[in-house]
Design a protein around this nucleic acid. Structure first.
Length: 442
DNA sequence: CCTGGAGTTGTCCTA
DNA sequence: TTAGGACAACTCCAG
């Protein structure tokens, strides 16, 4: 750009859509033409081990879709392959920037990144505007009467609903302001190969709400062979759907599903207030658990070779598709932490690597829940019986047969006997908690 | 400050 | 056969 027309910038991150996008709406409402940018962040890309990373493929496809929509409107997306700081240095040298608009991002890396960019822009006298977009209630918006954060879900959700139903939900029509993007000839759009990656196979349904499915969500969600869950998690992760659209549907269709959306905000709130949970047990009394952490056993779990069909089916679904049904996530997590006594952080890291819908706050919160170390967690003696769970939730073996090919010749001996593992886990947790066998404390 | 009720998702044993 | 309690008390939260 040689002309120094005054512009604003909207920086897409995990809000990859044009409709009902708060930060984008505010950018487009302003007096200056808006330059839409996306940065393939080298800091993040460097940490990805797999050249066929599924998330990157999803992001690339989503960003491409936005670009197509913008090109139709006579504009286009400016795509950078750089560190965020590098990208903004480049932008500042060629543009007269009035302000940069983004949506809040609450993860530790994102907070640090945005602090850095905000400081850089401040040094250039450029305003940095950030908006709430990815949640209904954030940070300190839902707190107890005494001003401290909730750590138990039910009272949190009660307060959340009370506050939510008192106000009218408003959508912003950012998509109607599309003509306020800067007019440019289309710029070349980098391929995945150009940024050092390859396209992965992903099979993600579009971000549409199936009202039939959602209305019976509470009765079908636990059966992994059924299409009983929304499959919208990945869209929530990358903002290819607006949370307000989903919550509105949930409020009228199914309270159980609304609760799941509230769980998402609960764990985001927990991560915001207690960022140490990323590395540490929420409840420190569990720090003394002596995890067995057997690497060979961990690899068997990863590969889906535990000898428990429901566990193995789940892990194979994850490995093959980057997705695992929610019920099965609980079963495999309970198995890893309780039956094998492997540190929840190992399982959490594996999910983080494999899950297309990976969300730090939910992944961490739910792993700590399964391990019993989290806020409002399952009690330590609650140990899923993988045989019983399979009988209950996959009675026809449909899910198991789907993910264990040639189930007829599946002959893996269970790597640990259930009753034995159960007693061993309870003993390990009781030992950590300082309980002594055979003595009732009072 | 005190009090009492409640707490995502289970399992197992006993009467 | 099945329903109900034990598992472990403890902390959280609202009134």
């Amino acid at each position: 750009m040689t002309n120094r027309e005054r512009v604003s910038i909207f920086w897409f991150r995990r809000d990859l859509r044009l409709n009902d996008n708060h930060g984008l709406f505010h950018a487009l409402k302003g007096p200056d033409p808006v330059v839409p940018i996306f940065i393939f962040d080298k800091n993040i890309l460097e940490s990805l081990g797999d050249p066929k990373d599924r998330r990157l493929t999803f992001i690339h496809q989503s960003v491409e879709r936005i670009n197509r929509q913008l090109v139709k409107a006579g504009s286009c997306l400016w795509v950078h392959h750089d560190t965020p700081l590098g990208a903004f240095q480049t932008l500042c040298s060629s543009l007269d920037i009035a302000g940069v608009f983004v949506n809040h991002d609450y993860e530790p890396y994102a907070i640090q990144r945005d602090d850095q960019i905000a400081a850089f822009l401040r040094s250039k006298k450029i305003a940095f505007h950030s908006f709430k977009d990815q949640v209904i209630f954030e940070k300190r918006e839902i707190e107890k009467a005494d001003g401290t954060p909730y750590t138990v879900f039910t009272p949190y959700s009660n307060r959340w609903k009370e506050k939510f139903f008192r106000h009218k939900l408003t959508f912003c029509q950012s998509e109607k302001l599309i003509s306020n993007f800067i007019k440019t000839a289309p710029l070349p759009f980098p391929s995945l190969t150009k940024i050092g990656f390859q396209s992965a196979q992903i099979d993600t349904p579009p971000p549409t709400i199936d009202a039939q499915l959602i209305s019976r969500y509470d009765t079908t969600r636990d059966f992994p062979a059924k299409e009983g869950t929304s499959k919208l998690s990945v869209h929530l992760r990358f903002g290819t759907v607006s949370i307000r659209t989903l919550v509105k549907a949930a409020a009228s269709l199914n309270e159980q599903w609304l609760n799941e959306l509230i769980w998402r905000e609960f764990f985001m709130m927990i991560l915001f207030h207690f960022p140490f949970v990323v590395k540490e047990n929420f409840k420190s009394q569990y720090n003394k658990i002596r995890w067995r952490n057997n690497e060979l056993e961990f690899r068997k779990w990863c590969k889906g070779e535990t000898g428990y069909p429901i566990v193995d089916a789940g892990m194979r679904q994850l490995n093959e598709t980057g997705f695992m049904h929610n019920r099965v996530r609980m079963i495999v997590a309970s198995f890893l932490t309780k039956h094998l006594l492997i540190d929840w952080r190992w399982g959490e890291a594996y999910f983080a690597e494999k899950l297309l819908d990976y969300e730090l706050s939910s992944n961490n919160g739910n792993w700590q829940w399964a391990a019993g170390t989290g806020c409002d967690a399952a009690p330590y003696f609650r140990i899923f019986n993988p045989v019983e769970q399979a009988r209950k939730f996959d009675p026809g073996l449909d899910y198991i047969r789907k993910w264990i090919k040639n189930f007829g010749s599946y002959r893996i001996k269970p790597m640990v006997e259930h009753q034995f593992a159960r007693k061993r886990a309870i003993a390990a947790y009781e030992q950590a908690l300082g309980k002594q066998k055979g003595r009732k404390n009072r």
